[in-house]
Design a protein around this nucleic acid. Structure first.
Length: 434
RNA sequence: GGAGAGGUGGCUGAGUGGUCGAAAGCGGCUGACUGCUAAUCAGUUGUAGCAGGAAUACCUGUUACCCCGGGUUCGAAUCCCGGCCUCUCCGCCA
């Protein structure tokens, strides 16, 4: 959420930012007039309350010395004042809710470094690493490899749970498990993160905190009877760990890494990426989350991005870093870099594709304000909002696709990346079994 | 899931309708005293919003907040209803 004071003090700046993000900037004027209205109502209601409070205190003090009829007259008079206050308050709170709801639906302003653009076609490839492998045979897509190796069962996934679900079996399941453990180990031991195992269901406040609600309810699974929402990413529970807390400056930065499954309805992506395991309703992910001092968040994003890239380099998969433009950045983020892996056959007959496996973002104080995530620089100083960041490190299914497709052999077996072998009983290859 | 107890300021803990933003103690801060530390004494000490003033972290006024949300009342920390959470006992269970 943006600071309402920004609307009051620098409306042009807000308009400019929203315009770049593809939002109609006239919303700023709407918000300002609503804000003025709310503040006016508040001021007048407060002065009525002040009067009422004084009168009530006086009445309490005099009650013994007043005759019954005098008291009664006074009582009725005050009751009238009370009614008027209630009326004014009702209007105020209605308008205040309206204002709040508007603010909750306004995206974050883009960071000054973000390239201006309309949609993903205006994203900029910042750099790339590794050479796509030259195959001396026609590489197969992961769904063919997976099925023939007996490590991926798309059909039975659909039978059990419906479309966009799949089953991993044998070395396929083992590969995913190895990746999870190995990635966690790297982030913990080499990159300095603290492992967190959070709940996979959260209350709706958490989703408001990260910015998934109220706008993106469409993409979330939730229990209709309870306030239980399945996490769409570990970002949600982990960022909310310190919700409504005031941390000390010395505790920052907090660097967390968590493995969780993620659940998404994918309503807005209906019909897209239906082959294989590229886009499912349930997938696993290792996620890094940081809470930092405001002045350090830019540097922490660079480090976070490098931590995610390090995983890919260790696996030796070609990738590129894409800087997301103002029009394509997500709702809550101020600046985002996507990491995309080269997958030689992921588009089937159409061939290769760059697969997004991580999205590393700095949200600045946008989520912190929603989640009331604060810190105090020194013992006596005022609480300030922290900056929050996160990025996948990495998302499993697409990483698995890249591994299967890049490291496939002509005979249909898969060479296991060396760093993973200790996590897979020192096996070198995934081969078909009976 | 059943029965009971309870949720008050940084902490402990009083407070059952007005004089309560809230006693007391601890802790914190300021000052005094003291070779230093400790002890002692005095004062001070919640957060947020809004309005006005002063202009770097200030003052004044005012409102709100005693788990959350409703209600009763001229007036609610205090009474009523709903919810959440914690603790104890029982049951069940990985």
């Amino acid at each position: 959420m943006l600071d309402i004071r920004l609307f009051r003090e620098q409306p042009e700046f807000v308009k400019e930012g929203l315009d770049k993000a593809g939002v109609d900037p006239t919303i700023v004027d709407t918000i300002r007039s609503l804000d003025d209205l709310v503040r006016g109502l508040k001021t007048s209601a407060e002065s009525m309350k002040a009067e009422m409070n004084t009168a009530n205190k006086a009445l309490g003090a005099q009650r013994k010395s007043l005759s019954e009829s005098e008291f009664e007259a006074k009582r009725l008079e005050l009751r009238g004042v009370g009614d008027r206050i209630n009326e004014a308050d009702a209007l105020r709170s209605q308008k205040e809710t309206e204002l709040q709801n508007l603010l909750l639906e306004i995206p974050n302003l883009p960071h000054e470094k973000v390239p201006v653009g309309k949609d993903d076609r205006d994203n900029v490839v910042a750099r790339s690493w590794g050479e796509p492998r030259a195959f001396d045979f026609k590489p197969k897509p992961h769904w063919e490899l997976g099925e023939s190796l007996g490590i991926l069962d798309l059909e039975r996934g659909v039978k059990i749970s419906g479309s966009r679900f799949y089953v991993l079996k044998g070395q396929g399941a083992a590969l995913q498990r190895a990746l999870i453990t190995w990635m966690l180990d790297v982030h913990i031991e080499e990159h300095g993160y603290t492992e967190v195992y959070p709940p996979f269901v959260v209350k709706q406040e958490c989703l408001y905190g990260t910015g998934n609600l109220p706008k993106f309810a469409d993409n979330l699974y939730h229990d209709v009877e309870e306030d239980f929402w399945l996490v769409p990413t570990a970002e949600v529970p982990v960022t909310n760990l310190h919700r409504d807390e005031i941390l000390t400056g010395a505790e920052l930065p907090k660097r967390y890494v968590a493995y969780t499954p993620c659940f998404r309805r994918e309503k807005m992506s209906a019909g897209r990426d239906v082959r294989g395991i590229k886009r499912g309703h349930q997938f696993d992910k290792v996620e890094m989350v940081k809470l930092t001092l405001p002045e350090n968040s830019d540097a922490e994003l660079d480090a976070l991005l490098d931590n995610a890239e390090d995983i890919i380099r260790k696996l030796n998969i070609p990738y590129r870093v894409v800087q997301v433009c103002t029009g394509d950045k997500t709702f809550s983020s101020a600046i985002t870099y996507d990491l995309e892996l080269y997958a030689p056959a992921s588009k089937g007959e159409e061939g290769a594709e760059w697969l997004e496996v991580s999205s590393c973002s700095n949200f600045r104080d946008f989520q912190a304000r929603r989640a009331n995530l604060r810190f105090r620089r020194d013992a006596g100083s005022k609480p300030e909002f922290v900056h929050t960041l996160n990025g996948s490190g990495l998302a499993l299914p697409r990483l698995m696709i890249a591994i299967l497709e890049n490291f496939q052999n002509e005979d249909g077996t898969i060479t296991i990346p060396e760093v993973l072998r200790p996590y897979m009983h020192n096996r070198e290859k995934i081969v078909a079994v009976g």
